[in-house]
């Protein structure tokens, strides 16, 4: 299998705070990697480095063959990476001034010069796929949180990404809407999409992940198959974290 993401000895600081410490991580094509950890552990920062929303200070990062230098030193690679990597945010970040369909059509038209007709057809197909084909002409504010997040997933998919990043995609949702978003992600994983998912949904992680990574204070402390990590964690920090999140 080819690796889509390769991180080697990656370090990231926020001022003096050492947020990511010597991260070594590879993600294979078609793999679903779920990253868990306490808030502030650096898990969001880790995936935000993959598409250059955060710079890193040292180390190596290659995404789908494009090397990214520390301090955003490689703008051409970065542009290519962003075309190939989709991202879904905790707060959806839909464009409120555009209809649902226009949200999805914007990037293909601007970045790939896709024609209006083709972009339109793609948007309709993707909206049907995430189960909200009938909401195409509404504005984001007219949709529920769960629907908005599904639009955000469709928007990212419109660029035909080779890798999808999910940054706590269900953390801002009402409990009854979490399921519909996880369902879409589950489908995506089944179809073979490479995914890096930061989440607190341990049930989803256990069911969908090929590999679970536990991050503690900027370091990968433990990783492995979900059943191994959840049922038989080796590191005492992982044990402590899991006993806290799985207790309730």
């Amino acid at each position: 299998m080819t690796d889509i993401v390769q991180m080697k000895g990656m370090n990231k600081y926020f001022g003096k705070l050492h947020v990511l410490k010597d991260i070594d991580l590879t993600v294979a094509k078609g793999e679903v990697v779920v990253i868990i950890g306490a808030s502030g552990s650096g898990k969001s920062t880790l995936i935000r480095c993959v598409n250059g929303l955060e710079e890193f200070e040292s180390g190596h990062l290659t995404v789908d063959g494009h090397p990214l230098a520390p301090k955003s030193g490689n703008p051409k690679s970065l542009a290519e990476i962003r075309k190939e990597v989709g991202m879904v945010f905790q707060q959806f970040n839909l464009f409120p001034h555009l209809t649902v369909k226009k949200n999805i059509m914007l990037a293909p038209k601007k970045v790939k010069d896709t024609s209006e007709t083709v972009a339109n057809a793609t948007a309709e197909r993707l909206l049907n796929r995430v189960g909200i084909g009938n909401q195409a002409d509404k504005y984001p504010s007219q949709l529920s949180g769960g629907q908005q997040q599904r639009v955000a997933i469709a928007r990212a998919l419109a660029m035909e990404p080779r890798l999808m990043l999910f940054d706590e995609p269900t953390s801002a949702l009402d409990p009854e809407m979490i399921g519909e978003v996880l369902d879409v992600m589950r489908e995506l994983a089944k179809e073979g999409m490479t995914m890096m998912v930061v989440t607190h949904e341990m049930g989803f992680a256990r069911e969908v992940a090929d590999r679970v990574i536990y991050i503690h204070e900027g370091q990968i402390v433990e990783q492995g198959k979900p059943d191994d990590v959840f049922d038989n964690p080796q590191n005492e920090r992982t044990q402590a974290f899991l006993s806290r999140v799985l207790a309730h």
Partner: peptide
Amino acid sequence: IAKGQTEAGLSLGLS
């Protein structure tokens, strides 16, 4: 305008 709007645009490949 929230920073997330810019991040969403950049993450989609827009300059």
